[in-house]
Amino acid sequence: MDSLVEAFRLIITLDADLFEILWLSVRVSLVALFISAIIGLPLGTWLAIAQFPGRKFCILLLNALMGMPPVVVGLMVYLLLSRSGPLGWMGLLYTPTAMIIAQVVLITPIIAALSNQVIEHLHQEYSDTFYSMGVTGRRAVAAYLVDARYALTTCILAGFGRAIAEVGAVIIVGGNIDHLTRVMTTAIALETSKGNLTLALALGAILLTLSLLVNALVIGVREYAAKRQYA
């Protein structure tokens, strides 16, 4: 009960540490999301419309990568960024950048695979017309991305959800260092291991609220788009 009171006190008093953690969570996940979208959306789109041998295999691989355990991703990125690893000279381990990299590896396949499905559907509708208008290559990719924009928000949202809720990868490469790499999920893990279950739960509730707000916003935008026949 004390922890619950404590959690509310933290929120109501706009506790600086809590907001630092929350803000880092959002920043890291948004930057990761931005990079993943820049890679994943064109990749998924290109795989939907390109024709080359091995295309099906690439899509299969993407779908498999979607289910990659965060801990494995964390470990891979750790070995890469470790001071004795190939990119160790960059000194990125235990920084927010390392967490961003891990999240990018984690959610790019999700965004690519989901957008691939969306664009494949749209491609069935548009392909004849695009051929007829001579629209190919980059112009086609760009057009699909623009026209599927509202459906793609859902793909991006799925990526954001995974990124912001993920703990296994960021705790390995970030180290859960106070005031440096502590985010909501690693803070929850820490409070759980300290036995502060109610506080951990309250932090989880804050994360859930954030997630709800983002979802509500996107659903609102999509509803509007559907009404205007843009979706």
Binding site: E125, Y126, D128, A143, V146, D147, A148, Y230, A231
Partner: peptide, 8 residues
């Protein structure tokens, strides 16, 4: 036969 228009 079926007009295909962009979502614009």
């Amino acid at each position: 036969q079926q007009p295909v228009l962009l979502r614009r």
